[in-house]
Nucleic acid binder design. Structure first.
Lengths: 194, 194, 194, 194
DNA sequence: CATGAATGAGTATTCATTCAT
DNA sequence: AATGAATGAATACTCATTCAT
């Protein structure tokens, strides 16, 4: 007896996730250009042909990986924003971001790998800038509530510290004093301590 | 009659520079993996074979590009350190770095492109970390003189701000308030105003 | 529906044989170094890429060709040794070898072409020496039974005559008196006449 | 002051010999195809360009190497033939050939390397066959004098033993009982002992 | 006579992608 | 849905040969 439509749907979802997962891991580990489609299929435990049933391109696979990464970050941030009152959100946001960093560094490594590739930014650049602006918007709001006099500039500055901290951590995870840096950020930008 | 050794030296220096220049520009513009050796040779106005007369392979060309970039940074920094008294160097260092950024952004884009590629970091990683540590060393010294209580931590923090600012600027050069950010950095870390 | 494992096996066997066959013919005809991988693929009627699906590189293809050639010889020799009583084998062995020579001279031409190439002997040398020793072992045994007083030396001598005869024949197949030479070898080394 | 014509002649002869020597050594060591023209020039201690003043081609260099090798053999053989009475020459010829083999095995290795390359034989084949016939002619004469009943066939046979012995020796110089084999050849073909 | 910079066609190999089953 | 055989354009790199000096 053939599979039901529902079962097929189920299978598709699982397989798709497996491919995405392999791709994400391999891109982060070896880079986009040096990862072959065959690599990804093998790692995901399926045939090359089947992979092309799910993603028409290596590039569309990249796009999907990017979307997944971004969705993950958005989700975490949105959760903080929705479940906490303005004025308390800044410290929580920072902790969320850096917990993600400590927990899944490859994830952010991938993020920056994508972001610094000209070939990739040609495709994803606008998306990147838009999301950055939106997150900075949150910061502005919070910084205003915290009583900062020049919240826009402060937001740019804060964003820079965050970004720089992530990169420095990725460059040398064992020595970078991540926790101290985060505390310092919080105290500087006036969020309530947690 | 063969060319004199001097003439050859001259020719070699010019050609080598042309190759390096093309490679640097193309790597920055298209990424390392997507730049072909033929690309580089054509752009430099010479044959593939000749390129291999000067650099034994693509990787060693990358290494040479990296060294050139680094030498350029080192040179600028060293000039500041040697020609100014301790205690006044911090602000000057920052201005130097960000002048370089504003003047030749592709240069730094290349720097970060290289740094976020796992395949490339496998080759250049140690070099990167060493240079980072050395520059942070300068910061520590200056921060101590500026009377900071925890100069090590401050240095890590400062370094992060710098790095983040560079990246944010590269992402959106027209909107990022680079000058203001630099001023803020200087005032925060206690170097004398300029 | 994917092909069954059996179907794939079938396909692989056929394609592999086609590649090996082309390679063998071309190596014999033009030499190893002057035969290109593209040559082989074209001659076998398939794409370059596919050839690499079957053999990981040109060298491993060479190795496979060598193994095939050797298996062919071994097979013929083993058949003689197993189906005939000691004491009668020598003449049969010689006839077997020289029938192979007359029937497929390119086959032996290939054999010697490989053997005299330093670059190739670096890869296949040990194998060559080992097989030579093993065949000489058979000769010793037979020569002992034929009542030769110094079977070891005789075996070396016999082996030399065989090898020399093959090469002389290859150099000038129309004029070399192969049959007479073989008869002379048999009468000299005391195998029963056939 | 410019060199005299004589000095130039002198220089040319020396340089030419150096090139030939390097080529011969390298061809024997690495094979024709894997030896580069640059290899040869470097080994001979001169520039690539200069080498092309002496030999217009890699192929013409090969031809010259071959001629040199052949001239050397011819010379040795002719010396024996001219300075000894018919009837005593056979054993001397054999000793001459095998002394050459023991003294300069690479020399013969080169000879066979060239001879088994189809690409090379296309150029040198006729030459090879002619020289072989001429040497066999000497053998026939000597064998007739030694009273052999079928001197033509014997000559073919002898030639085969010689050729086989050389090759076997080259394959495994340490173990092959060259001296014994030579003695056996001499006693078989009836030349006077030496 | 002498040099080595310069050329570019040619080679082995890889890899995204397609397709018959 | 699933397989893996098949394609061929593209890539890094080599090397015989030329040529300005």
């Amino acid at each position: 007896m053939p599979r039901t439509a529902e079962q097929n749907e189920q299978i598709r979802a699982v397989t798709r996730a497996a491919i995405l997962d392999s791709a994400m891991r391999l891109f982060a580990e070896k880079g986009y250009a040096t990862t072959t489609t065959r690599n990804i299929a093998t790692e995901a435990g399926l045939s090359v042909g089947l992979m092309y049933h799910y993603f028409s391109n290596k590039e569309s696979l990249l796009q999907a990986v990017f979307d997944t990464v971004m969705a993950r970050i958005d989700e975490a941030i949105t959760a903080v924003l929705q479940n906490n009152p303005p004025g308390e959100r800044l410290a929580l946001l920072l902790h969320t971001i850096f917990d993600l960093l400590a927990g899944e560094p490859e994830f952010w490594a991938l993020f920056y790998m994508l972001r610094t590739q000209p070939a990739i930014m040609a495709v994803l650049g606008d998306d990147f800038r838009q999301r950055t602006a939106s997150l900075r918007g949150c910061f502005i709001e919070e910084l205003e509530l915290a009583g900062q006099t020049a919240p826009e500039l402060e937001a740019y500055y804060l964003y820079s510290v965050i970004e720089g901290a992530i990169q420095q951590y990725l460059l040398d995870p064992t020595n970078y004093p991540l926790a101290d840096i985060v505390e310092k950020m919080i105290s500087q930008f006036g969020g309530k301590q947690t």
